[in-house]
Design a binder for these strands. Structure first.
Length: 592
RNA sequence: GGCCCCGUAGCUCAACUGAAUAGAGCAUUUGACUACGGAUCAAAAGGUUACAGGUUUGAAUCCUGUCGGGGUCACCA
């Protein structure tokens, strides 16, 4: 529709004023509710060139539209409002009714890969709310890009090596008494996380002891026996010490089993999992290459660095003086590996905004210093922190919101709420599946409705809402529509509309227009990688339906054609709600 | 301190990337169930978009400065 308007506008401008306008749909927008019309064109950009008053231009262009595509129009202070006839909207409904993939674009067979990395957990502690935002965001953006016709490959980079996991291993060795997930009944990731905390506790005690003997705090932190042991363990690990490797494999195995369970419940998955332990060596070759090229240099102590001060950044270490790799080394290597494996047109990294600097460096080192073409196609999808009422989540202060606990709590709340409303009877089918769908729907919607790049606040004291701008509101609206359609089917009503010569009431027209917008919203969400656009759209659509539902009787309508049209609008609304919310990873029930 | 991000109703968030009277939800007040599903709807109230300048037909949005909040400046990841 916008394209038609743009095309006609171009013609109008050229015929009336001899203006050559480069079609730009941003000046064509939906008409605000207070005004009459469907679409609005802002005429200000043209008044100078046309050398006429805004209203005069708008009137002339409006007349041209009326002549050309039979749209009605009115003019308010330089804004040209166009209205289209009911036939056009009803026609649109008829054409799209049977398209279950409405709003989605299928990838072309030769579409190159778009790679997206998300989740990327450490293996020393369980996932928390921050990871949930990462996971949901990555998963949702994957779905959205897929719906935009991209060939998406989802990858996870597991951070399975380093001093952090050694800390857990050491603490388990020392204080664990051979405890396992089986003997303790704990989820593997939680068990390993427990020993990470345990390490910290004993480590702090050691520091305190050393300081009591008059040692400086900073020295004590480095001299504490536990820390020295952990570092020794890391060295042994790097030297492939069989015993350490066995322990490492065992404990990581526990963690993976735990993560798998969390991922499964969250409803997310990956096409490929990379392990840092398998990729960290690859970056070294790239560093060597850069050294040869003269892009990097060797410092006196033997570490390899890159000087980015001319880019407004600092010097950055790429390889330690002892030759071991750092985070950056590893990321260079994985990028190269992935490029060779998938030849992606774009590599998206879903990583928190605390790492903006890291990715600035990565892009420059890869794209400019090493002159790798794929370095220019790296996109850091940077998202804001989840904050608690009293600040950031800190694992050491025990203020983390655990992912598993939170999901469990949400499902429990869904159960409470459902029971309270007396909707937990067998008529709703598998009630446990429903609780899970609703609880997780609330959680996912809550996280995804806010713009990814902004920090967001989560208050554990107040449970996530089920009314208003929420996932369950949308799920409920969907269930109600399905119920309507079931009733129609029971009464043998076939609501295929076979006429377009109907009047549309305002609620009906608003709803059809909102449905019509969906494909464009998906495109916009894909372009800006923002599930928030989808979430807010779905909510508006559900609200629009409720308004329509309240105002226009369906089964009491005496005109069968009008009734059928309303059923058809309802059916299409349910489809769009389902398709929209599916892009957020939210399922929608038939009944609730 | 250098660099980056943010500041919108009491609270949580929008505003399609510069357009009309800045919109929703929650909370508050009021109204609507003998009704196709009340997890609903309708209405009231709530704003100098942190502040001060600037750019232009038009600014929450762009530029400059000030104040406030966060992030980051590791041979951690």
């Amino acid at each position: 529709m916008k394209n038609l308007i743009a095309k006609t506008l171009k013609e109008a401008l050229s015929t009336l004023y001899n203006i050559d306008w480069q079609a730009d749909t941003s000046i064509i927008q939906k008409t605000k509710k207070e005004f009459e019309g469907d679409y609005t064109i802002v005429m200000f950009p043209f008044v100078k060139m046309a050398r006429k008053a805004p209203d005069a231009v708008a009137n002339e262009v409006g007349a041209f539209f009326k002549e050309k595509i039979h749209s009605d129009f009115n003019v308010v202070k330089g804004f040209l409002n166009l209205s289209f006839s009911a036939e056009i909207w009803i026609q649109f409904l008829r054409e799209n009714r049977s398209n279950l993939q409405f709003g989605y674009t299928v990838a072309a067979p030769d579409e190159p890969v778009t790679l997206i990395e998300y989740s990327s957990p450490n293996t020393n502690k369980p996932l928390h709310l921050g990871h949930i935002r990462n996971n949901l965001l990555g998963d949702s953006v994957s779905r959205i890009l897929g719906a935009c016709g991209k060939n998406v490959v989802k990858v996870n980079l597991v951070n399975d090596r380093g001093i952090h996991i050694c800390k857990s291993m050491l603490a388990w060795q020392k204080f664990g008494n051979g405890e396992t997930p089986e003997t303790s009944g704990m989820k593997g990731d939680h068990l390993v996380g427990k020993y990470y905390v345990e390490f910290d506790k004993h480590y702090k005690a050691e520091i305190a002891d050393l300081m009591k003997d008059g040692m400086e705090k900073e020295v004590a932190e480095k001299q504490a026996p536990l820390m020295l042991e952990a570092q020794e363990m890391l060295r042994k690990w790097e030297a492939n010490d069989p015993e350490i490797r066995r322990l490492w494999n065992k404990m990581n195995g526990w963690v993976y089993a735990g993560f798998d369970q969390t991922y499964k419940q969250l409803g997310i998955s990956f096409d490929k999992i990379y392990y840092e332990s398998q990729t960290y060596l690859l970056g070294k070759a790239l560093v060597e290459e850069g050294l040869q090229k003269g892009a990097f240099y060797k410092a006196e102590n033997g570490s390899v660095r890159v000087d980015l001060r001319d880019k407004g950044l600092d010097e950055k270490v790429l390889l330690r003086s002892d030759g071991t790799s750092v985070y950056m080394t590893q990321d260079l290597g994985t990028a190269q590996l992935r490029y060779e494996e998938f030849k992606p047109q774009q590599m998206i990294y879903v990583v928190g905004n605390e790492q903006n600097y890291h990715f600035d460096v990565l892009k420059i080192v890869l794209g400019e210093k090493l002159e790798k073409e794929f370095g220019k196609h790296i996109f850091h999808l940077s998202y804001g922190m989840v904050e608690l009422p009293n600040g950031k989540m800190k694992s050491r202060e025990g203020t983390v919101v655990d992912a598993d606990d939170l999901m469990e709590e949400m499902i429990f709340q869904a159960k409470e709420k459902t029971s309270e409303l007396g909707k937990n009877d067998a008529a709703n089918g598998d009630v446990n599946a429903l609780y899970e769908m609703v609880g997780l729907g609330a959680l996912k919607y809550f996280i995804l409705k806010v713009d990814p790049k902004k920090n967001m606040l989560f208050n554990p004291e107040e449970s996530i809402d089920f009314n208003g701008n929420t996932g369950p509101f949308i799920q409920y609206t969907h269930a109600r529509i399905r119920s309507l359609l079931r009733k129609a089917a029971e009464n043998g009503i076939d609501y295929a509309v076979n006429t377009t010569s109907l009047q549309l009431q305002s609620a009906e027209k608003e709803l059809i227009k909102a449905i019509y917008d969906f494909p464009e919203v998906v495109q916009n969400a894909g372009a800006s990688m923002s599930p928030a656009l989808i979430a807010n759209y779905a909510f508006d659509l559900a609200k629009e339906f409720n308004r329509f539902y309240q105002e226009t009787p369906i089964f009491k309508e005496s005109d069968a054609n009008a009734r059928d049209l309303r059923l058809q609008i309802s059916e299409m609304t349910a489809l769009v709600l389902k398709n929209a919310v599916a892009l957020l990873g939210i399922n929608v029930p038939e009944k609730m």
